[in-house]
Amino acid sequence: MVAPYIELRDVRKGFGPVEVLKGVNLKVYPGQVSALVGDNGAGKSTLIKGLAGVQPYDSGEVLVGGEPVHLTSPKDASKLGIEVVYQDLALCENLDIVQNMFLGREEVHQGTLSNGEMEKQASSTLGSLSVRTMKSVRQKVSSLSGGQRQTVAIARAVLQQAKVVILDEPTAALGVAQTEQVLLLVRRLAEQGVGVLIISHNLADVFAVADHINVLYLGTMVAEVETKDSNRDDVVGYITGAKTFTPNLEGAAR
């Protein structure tokens, strides 16, 4: 078995008296897609905000590449190769694809932008992800579809040489065709050796794309299953709390 790139051990987070994460364990493997599912308010966003460094955990251990680390700012996460693509994407519609992919990390030579170099890298990054639906890398983001925007946001993370890309509900706002496009992209990311943690409400998507499924229920990780050993009914049961996950029983049932 591959060693996990990220491992969370017993992380906790509370807001005042409310405990939102009650000792959560999670592993994200390089080259594999891990899904994080759970009902609204289960604590999914809180969990990834901790990983992104924007809202540090109160306690618990975070291991990245086997080493214990402290994630207290987005820069910490970025340095460790952890990139988050938030649901609202945070792209500038008035800028083009290249400018968005390099925003904040523009390459300059003698004080002026190296537009050619950036264009080339953006092209080859998109090419390596087999993105073929865009007319030109100099297209304004305002002219892109939802799926294409998601693609640009993900490509931005890849360009950053991310080791792990965390996607918050990447398909929530997309139609069928565009969802498929983004799921293909997620698989391709994993093929390149990137670890992917995908949050989704859509179990069809999760089963189509994920290798592992982690179920969060009221701040507790109630199930960690291999996609191939599980089915939708079981996962729905874990999400709603109607079913209890018991690793041994699961094994015995097979």
Binding site: P74, D88, A90, L91, C92, E93, N94, R105
Partner: peptide
Amino acid sequence: AVGGNPEAARRAG
């Protein structure tokens, strides 16, 4: 970038 989407600009550092 700040004119187009200040939040995106902030997150980009």
